[in-house]
């Protein structure tokens, strides 16, 4: 039962961008399209799950005083692997995400999970936690990217979606549109959780 909890926590209660309001830099930057959001999310799932596994496996070996340095080295390693692999095999995603792949290193969600969860729990639970939080992040980015792409460009994953006379609302794919869209979603999420609590 509690294993289930480890996984589902990242999907709502600790949903990274909306509930925790963490890792907003890539959230705002790469969600111009649904593809960018999904690609970024998958990269983060990979890095987060593997770094959680390694950190939890080594949690008794790593001395407390150098734990942050160790975590960063481990995270950076997986990020460089993601960068090389996307460049080699998924070149279109690599050009879409560009600089934001190396910036996963400084995404506080990943270091946050390593410090708050993986360094205190076993390998299996940390894997579930990584997958759950990563999946929550991916879904959030894909939804945000979808809304911005459909309204701002009239397409979804590059497929035309709107009627032919639809005038794209270009504002949505530009930087200010990202803030507005994110703000509206945050408000909606708060309203939903507010009604659930009462």
């Amino acid at each position: 039962m509690s294993y289930m909890r480890d996984f589902t926590r990242g999907l709502w209660d600790e949903l990274p961008p909306f509930r925790m309001v963490l890792g907003l830099c890539p959230v705002l930057a790469v969600t111009k399209s649904a593809e960018g959001g999904l690609g970024m999310g998958l990269c983060v799932i990979f890095v987060l799950t593997l770094s959680n596994i390694i950190v939890s496996a080594l949690r008794r070996v790593i001395p407390r005083k150098v734990r942050i340095a160790s975590f960063i080295v481990i995270i950076a390693t997986f990020v460089v692997i993601v960068e090389l692999v996307t460049q080699a095999y998924f070149y279109s995603i690599y050009t879409t995400l560009g600089l934001f792949i190396p910036l996963i290193v400084v995404n506080c969600i990943i270091l946050g999970r390593a410090e708050a969860f993986a360094s205190r729990n076993g390998v299996f639970r940390s894997t579930l936690d990584g997958l759950g939080v990563g999946l929550g992040f991916t879904l959030s980015l894909t939804v945000l990217g979808s809304i911005r792409e459909i309204l701002g460009n009239g397409t979804w994953f590059d497929m035309p979606l709107m009627w032919s006379s639809f005038e794209p609302f270009t504002f949505m794919v530009e930087a200010p549109g990202a803030f507005v869209c994110l703000g509206l979603m945050l408000g909606a999420m708060n309203a939903i959780s507010g009604t659930r609590a009462s």
Binding site: V61, P63, V66, A69, S70, V73, A76, V80, I81
Partner: peptide, 18 residues
């Protein structure tokens, strides 16, 4: 020792992937 070993293992992995 621990930090050095972690860095060495990571470097080895990265050079392999590269």
């Amino acid at each position: 020792i621990v930090l050095t070993l972690i860095c060495a293992a990571c470097a080895l992995l990265l050079s392999g992937v590269r």
